[in-house]
Amino acid sequence: LIDAPGLGKTVVKALQSLDVGTAFNAGLAIVVMAIVLDRVTTAACERSATGVPSAEGSGRAPGRLGGPFVKWRRHLLVAGGVVAAVLVYLSHTYVWAAEFPGEGSTGSTIASAADTVTTWAQDHLSGMTNALRDAVTNGLLNPFQSLLTDSPWWLVGAVLVAVGAVLGGRRAGVTAGVCVALLVGTGMWSDSMTTLASTAVATVLVMALGVVVGVWMGRSPMADRLIRPTLDAAQVMPPFVYLVPFLALFGATRFTAIVAAVVYAAPVTMKIIADGVRAVPETTVEAAAAAGSNTWQIITKVQLPMSRSALALAVNQGLIYVLSMVVVGGLVGAGALGYDVVAGFSQGELYGKGLAAGLAIVLLGVMFDGITQAAARRTTAVNGRRH
Rank of each mutant, 00 (worst) to 15 (best):
L65H: 01
D340E: 15
Q347M: 07
L247F: 10
P305E: 06
L319I: 03
W189H: 06
M217T: 03
V83Q: 01
Y351C: 00
L65Y: 05
T295F: 07
L247E: 12
P229G: 05
L337D: 05
G177R: 03
T129S: 14
R39Q: 08
V268M: 04
S190A: 10
G330A: 13
Y264H: 10
R228N: 15
A336Y: 01
G67L: 00
V178H: 12
A343Y: 08
S324W: 00
W120L: 15
T194L: 03
G80E: 02
S346E: 14
R133F: 10
V259Y: 06
A49C: 08
A200H: 04
T372I: 09
A288S: 08
T109Y: 10
M33E: 11
V52P: 00
A29Q: 14
R73P: 01
V12C: 00
A223G: 05
L65G: 00
A360E: 02
F100R: 09
D369P: 07
A261G: 13
P62K: 03
A98F: 05
V88E: 05
A314F: 00
W72P: 00
A248L: 04
G63V: 00
I273C: 01
I110G: 05
H124K: 10
L77C: 01
V280W: 01
G102V: 02
Y351A: 14
W154N: 08
L132M: 14
L331Y: 03
V263P: 03
I320G: 07
T129L: 11
A165P: 05
R225M: 14
S220N: 15
S198N: 13
T380E: 15
G354V: 12
V82H: 00
D369T: 12
D150A: 13
G338K: 01
A289N: 07
T300I: 06
P245E: 13
G6H: 06
R133C: 12
V342C: 11
G127C: 07
K271M: 14
R386G: 07
T149L: 08
A200P: 02
G187D: 12
P221A: 15
A266W: 01
E99A: 11
T284S: 10
M367I: 04
P221V: 12
V174A: 12
F250N: 08
R170I: 14
T186Y: 05
I371P: 05
T93A: 15
V159G: 05
E99C: 00
D224V: 00
F69K: 02
L243F: 12
T149V: 15
F345K: 07
A381R: 13
V36W: 09
A265C: 01
F246R: 02
S346M: 07
L226E: 06
A111N: 03
A291E: 08
V259Q: 06
R378W: 11
L87I: 09
I299F: 06
A257L: 09
A257R: 04
R74Y: 08
G210W: 02
L359S: 11
